[in-house]
Write a protein that binds this DNA or RNA. Structure first.
Length: 241
DNA sequence: CGCTGGCCAGTTAAAGAGTC
DNA sequence: GACTCTTTAACTGGCCAGCG
């Protein structure tokens, strides 16, 4: 497959990670020598990728309403760039869906964001409809940055919210047989060609994922290569359950 | 002393309110 | 109807007040 560039970053600036603190903040030394505080758009533990001294890239935003002009976008660890901006996967998937790049989800005429559903007041990331051959599809997107030797893992911590989403997807599968129900893992680094649940971090999540899979929930681990210039879609990773 | 609940941090995106 | 402005929820762990 020819890699498809499906996201362009604005011009980024290079630096070194000094420290990350209080969830939303990262202290970064730019190559210019300036020490700045950047917004850390990732509230998770960032297992294995939060390495002090590693190269990073930040975007600059002139918006006067922002308190922090810089946003931390990616970090270079294990010989690869890893995206840290958790709001990006949803935007990238939205444009990839619209462009028909994702093989299992191509051909839908419309996409809706954040549609309310389920028994626990959840909202699905995408509801796809108007496909000539396929029933409508519910698609939940998760950002994946943790990896061990080419194997991408999610989650990297106990996630009650992630467990809830899996229960909700199972509920959809059982109550709405005429729809597709999809769990999409956005692998935010290019060095992984396999995907597995992070059982050592959250064994309950792994059990729920396997149960959902056995009931017909589609698991779509999508590979993306992250570079300071942009993001490429690399195809589907092998699912290891 | 240990637990629980509420609040806080910065940004985004969606929903709601307001204007022409 | 189209546009802009304002409000709100979501993300998550740390902290603190209040309680038994």
């Amino acid at each position: 497959m020819t890699p498809t560039l499906c996201w362009h970053y604005p011009p980024l600036q290079a630096g070194i990670l000094c420290r990350r603190y209080q969830r939303f903040f990262a202290e970064i030394e730019l190559t210019s020598g300036d020490r700045i505080t950047a917004h850390c758009p990732n509230t998770g533990p960032m297992t294995g990728i939060c390495q002090v001294g590693a190269p990073v890239q930040v975007s600059y935003h002139a918006d006067p309403k922002r308190k922090l002009a810089y946003t931390w976008e990616m970090i270079f660890v294990d010989g690869t760039w890893v995206g840290v901006n958790t709001s990006l996967p949803n935007r990238v998937i939205a444009s990839a869906l619209a462009a028909g790049i994702l093989p299992e989800l191509a051909g839908y005429g419309t996409q809706q964001r954040e549609v309310a559903y389920g028994q626990e007041r959840s909202r699905i990331d995408f509801y796809l409809a108007d496909h000539p051959q396929q029933p409508p599809a519910y698609v939940e997107v998760k950002n994946t940055t943790w990896a061990q030797g080419g194997l991408a893992l999610f989650p990297d911590t106990v996630t009650m919210r992630g467990q809830k989403h899996l229960r909700e997807l199972q509920w959809l599968r059982q109550t709405q047989p005429d729809t597709r129900v999809c769990m999409l893992y956005f692998i935010n680094r290019g060095d992984c060609d396999r995907f597995a649940p992070g059982d050592s971090a959250d064994p309950t999540y792994g059990q729920l994922l396997r149960a959902a899979y056995n009931q017909g929930v589609e698991i779509l681990p999508y590979r993306f290569a992250i570079e300071p210039t942009g993001i490429q879609f690399l195809g589907t990773a092998k699912l290891v359950l």
